[in-house]
Amino acid sequence: MIEAKVENTIGRHKDWQPKILAFLCNWCSYAGADLAGVSRIQYPPNIRVVRIPCSGRVNPIFILKCLQNGFDGVLVSGCHPGDCHYISGNYVARRKFAVLKTLLEFMGLEPGRVQFSWVSAGEGEKFAQVVTKVTEDVKKLGPARKLVRNLEPTETKY
């Protein structure tokens, strides 16, 4: 029974739909998502949005924590270079993400699981495209298995 619940929680059944966490910066990407909404542009409903002040606020720990807790993919989206509300937050983020992505892929994590994008407040169309692409990529990869926390007792049962 417990097995079944685990399967269910992280969605390994037949009608599986990926769960993707999207960290959107307050000033650009979140507004971009808003624009996509008010413009009635269709995109997959697989993302759960967390609004953050700046892509520079995203600690790699957040991304790893998402994967550990059963998200199948993570998207981080911020302002285009030069547009950061805090001048340089996204430049610093870009270095952090480059290293994180390289490291995870070197270890053997699927490249599509963790993705990054720049989406401005005026790019409702692009936001929809990004979410569609990320969702498609994660769907192809199937449910996350690496780094996922399994709370079942791992020690020998005796």
Binding site: I2, K5, T9, N69, G70, R149, L151, P153
Partner: peptide, 11 residues
């Protein structure tokens, strides 16, 4: 105490 995210189950 460790809780399984999204459930009321833990250990």
């Amino acid at each position: 105490d460790e809780k399984m995210p999204g459930t009321s189950r833990g250990r």
